[in-house]
Structure formats: structure tokens, C-alpha cells
Design a binder for these strands. Structure first.
Length: 200
DNA sequence: ATACGGATTGACT
DNA sequence: GTCAATCCGTATA
């Protein structure tokens, strides 16, 4: 059921970002399985992408994870508050990553509600990358872990969306990247309530 | 050693 | 719509 390791070894991180829409992301933390299907992603295209941490081949203690072979998690802290969950792709030495920005929750709803301090499901429970990580119990201590592990993984359950239902648009929050901020590297399911706005 | 600011969210007007 | 929260990676010295 898990996507095989080789799935993540493609050098086309943008195509993979599109393909991950509709795939199921799960975590098992303290024996509690939570997850749902991906409805929003963003591609970060390695050393030539000004929006990427790895732009200009920047290899540091933080970005080291991105330089490993695809098929592992890259988790970092943003704004001192929010954990961001990414999937590393491509081969070792080519630092590609895909940010998971939103999922539609399907499994472990009670646990997700507890982690999010909510009593009922609202759209913002897994809307936005910081919210996804919190809902799934993801933190920096799973940085670098394999997606073949039983802690975090992705499954294909046969759910698909047509190209008409999936929008390609510029990424969010990367204005510092100059003209690279205009690249259509963000993918989302049109109209899905869990997608961070705009979602039309 | 120090300064700057970010792949954001949620509370509040 | 505005804005505070909050830590660490990164650049500069």
C-alpha cells in the first residue's frame, strides 16, 4: 500500500507535486494513526529555485536533509512557531522537496481534534502546512525519517483528480524569491474546503 | 557575537 | 482587514 521508495526518486519535483494530490498521508505517533488525503502541495525545485532553502546549493545543518536521496521527511521550524512537513524527492545530491500544505482528514479524527484543541472538525483543522503538521503530530524529531517507516508514510488508495479539478498556481509566502515566486509550483484541489485560500 | 527575518497561524477590530 | 507570537538558521563581523 505504501508508495515505493522509487516513486520519490523522480527528478521532476513539479510533476510529483501534482501526482501527490489525492494520495493519503499517514502518521503513527504513540500508536495513534492519523491521516487523510493530500489536497494541496508546493514544489521546491532545488538549487535553481530562489524560494527553496537549498537555493544556490546551500548545504547547512538544516538543509542537509534535502540533499539526501528522495523518500524521506524534511521537517523544519518556521517563524519560531510552526513545524513544516515536506517530502524529499529525487536522487542524493539533488535537493528537491515538496511541502504538504493541506489534507482532507479521514483517519484518527478524535486524535486530530485533541491535537488541534478543537471539539468539531472545521476547515482550518488541516488547512495550511503548520496545521497539517500539528494535526498529524509531526515535529522536527521525525526529520530525515524514511517514508517506508511505520511512523510516517504515503499510500495510493486509488483516489484521483482530473487535471480540470487540480489548479496550478504561484506558491504562497515566497515573495522574497523574486520572479521565482511567480512559478506555478502550487497544486490544489479546486474548491476543496481544506485548501488555504484562494481555493477557486 | 550579534542582527535580521521567515515555505504561518489565530486572535482581534 | 490588521498584527503579535516566537525560535533558529543564516549572514556579517
Amino acid at each position: 500500500m505504501k508508495l515505493p521508495d522509487k516513486y520519490y526518486h523522480s527528478s521532476d519535483v513539479v510533476a510529483l507535486s501534482r501526482d501527490l494530490i489525492g494520495k493519503y498521508l499517514f502518521t503513527s505517533i504513540n500508536n495513534e494513526v492519523t491521516g487523510g488525503y493530500i489536497v494541496e502541495t508546493e514544489a521546491y525545485n532545488g538549487i535553481i529555485d530562489r524560494a527553496s532553502h537549498s537555493f544556490g546549493n546551500r548545504l547547512t545543518s538544516r538543509t542537509r536533509t534535502m540533499f539526501e536521496q528522495g523518500g524521506i521527511a524534511y521537517v523544519y521550524l518556521c517563524y519560531g512557531i510552526h513545524e513544516m512537513f515536506n517530502i524529499v524527492t529525487s536522487v542524493a545530491g539533488q535537493p528537491h522537496a515538496i511541502l504538504i500544505r493541506a489534507i482532507e482528514p479521514t483517519d484518527g479524527i478524535e486524535t486530530i481534534l485533541t491535537r488541534r484543541n478543537m471539539e468539531t472538525i472545521k476547515p482550518n483543522i488541516t488547512r495550511g502546512p503548520g496545521s497539517v503538521a500539528k494535526a498529524l503530530g509531526i515535529s522536527r524529531n521525525i526529520n530525515g525519517i524514511s517514508l517506508q517507516s511505520d511512523t510516517v508514510w504515503v499510500e495510493d488508495r486509488g483516489l484521483t483528480f482530473t487535471n480540470k479539478e487540480v489548479i496550478a498556481a504561484p506558491r504562497i509566502g515566497v515573495a522574497y524569491a523574486g520572479e521565482d515566486a511567480l512559478l506555478p509550483y502550487r497544486f490544489y484541489v479546486k474548491g476543496n474546503i481544506y485548501v488555504s485560500k484562494p481555493n477557486k
